[in-house]
Design a protein around this nucleic acid. Structure first.
Lengths: 245, 245, 245, 245
DNA sequence: AATGAATGAGACTTCATTCAT
DNA sequence: GATGAATGAAGTCTCATTCAT
């Protein structure tokens, strides 16, 4: 969206380069911790000139997030509209999502960490896009349930598991590592589709055991904070019968 | 650990209350966007009195994260040391982790979003604790692979899937909803354990199909950004000779 | 000056001890850089109790300076009133002054460095005392000039040389060293009295030489800043006749 | 040394002007008591613009002291390296030192009073320069002793007397008065060189008298604080048996 | 006599943004 | 197109002082 009417031919090119660098800095140091001065130094431009290109700092955030969500949503819809098995479409969509995570890791960091720095209108747009993307996935999962490939389960729960598994990847992924988007997609889908699909006899005793544990071992509660205050201390109050006698 | 030499009996109580409120504000607005003035207003105390309790803003971050990681790591180690099936221990650990996510949702938000605001020494402590927790999980997963319950897979990959699925939960979970930690743990473990365990025949054709798709449909690449510049624009020349003919 | 009417017997004792400690802290860190908290910690008293004794921070400064100037001025007058040679009285006064510098080095540091932190009324008192002390010395020096022991010189100039030599001592003196007040007094007076007394033929050529130097070596001015900007650089502008030809 | 990469031509000029004004304010009110707001008001610039020039408040201190010590040390070394009588060189160095005291009285005040506000690294630099300057003087004085012009005396003691006499001058000197650096230098050197040089017979009886006084008049001790507690108070019991009997 | 708790002014500093040139 | 200079709000933190208990 070129703002002032009338710009030289290099304007948009340079503008995109500045957003690239901004995304990189924001990802490394955080949006709040990156000053316009930092950006200027990295770009090699004084502050005044920077504003000629960027409009405002918040606007950089908007652009960075548009870069991620625009193509992703567009491609997701194309894939969802294909005329094939929902599992295949989920698998393709998974790889598509992971591809952008690998390629635009900087942007994803910013997207995930600093979206709350957006003001009302922009935030609303962003949340709408997120919701749209979720619905594409929900639809495909529902198809798979409907056709019996997946066992019945709350549809939102399946969606959230799909998203958890994929979206948290940016936290640890390395673009210079041995894994790529195709590999991770294969693995994630293998886990999810088997996990969603297998009939209910696979892990029969596990839940029984868990119930038994919780019943029989009250002194070891699963709540990590239960009795936390007294854990490190040893001042067991010397109940009856203890001590010398 | 009372800092100045003398403190009245109410000091620690009030201090904990202030940390509670800080966690809530940080979770809502972000650490950087929450000023000490905001906190003072929320607590009902002037700035000076606030510093009497908190020491520094960064110290609040340290305390919030210690509240999460201390109990969690302690309990995780207790569970890992139990003399039972690794799957059961993973299941219990999963519920333990989800329990603290449900109970301390504020803290988890801060923990996940603002840990980079910590300075060197404190950050190192935190990353060490994170790594310790990961290793507890890795150990249990390795046990399950060794005893043949899970199929062979890169051990770090299994760990990361476990963590992705659980750790991203804070992004959407609602403490007032219908789901609780025990339910989510049941579902997550069902997905993961079936996904990790099923023999390799379950999804035979899927990867073949995916390969075929990528080969046969080059005009619909999985990379969301491929050809992105020309997509939203309308100047698709749609010249002669394009498309199948 | 006991302030509130009615104080226990230990009040004044403790008060003096607090002023001792305050002088020590002020001397080490400076008045502005020493907080009431620091003082409380050093004294072993909470802030509230401290104020019961000290009244205010500035009041400590007043007390510290009164401790120095009160005894000194009193003793100086006693010595000046003795019925002996002015040189002996100057010598005794010198030792008296150096004695308090050695014994109350802390106080002297504060006295010399932080008197400008005093507000109007207190500052006026202090400056009056300083002026009184100077006049005692001026009087003795005038006596010595009048009786011909010293050569004629501007009386204020002699006074200031006496004060310079003594008053700057606190900057480097060590109370644990080999020199004491009596030794320094002997040396200072030896220098001053010989310097003031010797007839004017002792250094005949020195001033001639100095005049000659200033006249003949204009390229090495005594003003340290003359030509300072061009000193480190070498960009001598290549005047006429220099260079190749 | 321009800090940020680019600066206009007026930058350094204005920067120097700001340091001038800062030195003036610091000298009048003290470094700690002068706020950046005060400086901004005096300069006619808002706080933000001020920081554009100064970097930090402490940096002003560094610059002020560099302005004094840089030229002074440089010139002192040039003078010490001259091929003339050490007395002449001391005389020239004395005038050089007094010249900068007269010209940069503001800076000298700051230099003498607030050097302890410097942080570790900067403080070390400063103390090193002070020590270098002292050594130049010590060397010249040692030369004069070696060639027999001065009587034998502890070398450090001679140096400290030289420095005391000169360095304390800033406390009372008036740049609008009748005395100038050349005059004071003449007088100081007359005092010091005669005082250092005169043979040991000049003041024979003085020390004998002083000894006698201390022995014979114990009720008038030179220590100003001896018996101080009872002096100003009126509760002198003056009981029987006190005093000589 | 003493304490812990509270206050509010003010300190230094950073930063997004604007504008004349 | 680009720059250096300027602004003013806001941020974190310190500190002398007061007061109920």
């Amino acid at each position: 969206m070129p703002r002032p009417p009338g710009h030289g031919p290099g304007f948009e090119v340079r503008r995109q380069k500045i957003i690239d660098i901004a995304a990189s800095l924001f990802a490394q140091q955080g949006y709040a911790a990156t000053s316009i001065n930092d950006l200027g130094r990295a770009v090699g431009l004084a502050k005044g000139a920077l504003y000629y290109y960027i409009g405002s700092k918040e606007n950089l955030l908007v652009e960075i997030q548009a870069r991620v969500m625009g193509p992703l949503l567009s491609r997701a819809r194309q894939i969802a509209d294909l005329d094939t098995d929902p599992l295949l479409r989920l698998r393709l969509l998974s790889e598509s999502l992971l591809t952008i995570i690998f390629r635009r890791l900087d942007h994803i960091w910013v997207y995930e960490h600093d979206y709350r720095s957006l003001s009302g209108a922009e935030l609303k747009t962003l949340l709408g896009q997120r919701s749209d993307f979720e619905q594409v996935i929900s639809g495909l999962l529902a198809e798979a349930v409907d056709q019996g490939t997946f066992r019945a389960m709350p549809p939102r729960l399946a969606t959230l598991q799909f998203l958890n598994l994929h979206n948290h990847t940016y936290q640890w992924v390395r673009t210079d590592g041995q894994w790529d988007a195709a590999f991770l997609s294969r693995e994630y889908c293998a886990t999810l589709f088997r996990g969603f699909g297998a009939p209910d006899h696979a892990l029969p005793k596990l839940e029984e055991q868990a119930e038994a544990f919780k019943r029989d071992r009250p002194e070891l509660p699963l709540d990590p904070e239960a009795g936390w205050n007294s854990l490190p201390a040893t001042e067991q109050p010397a109940g009856p019968g203890s001590g010398s006698e």
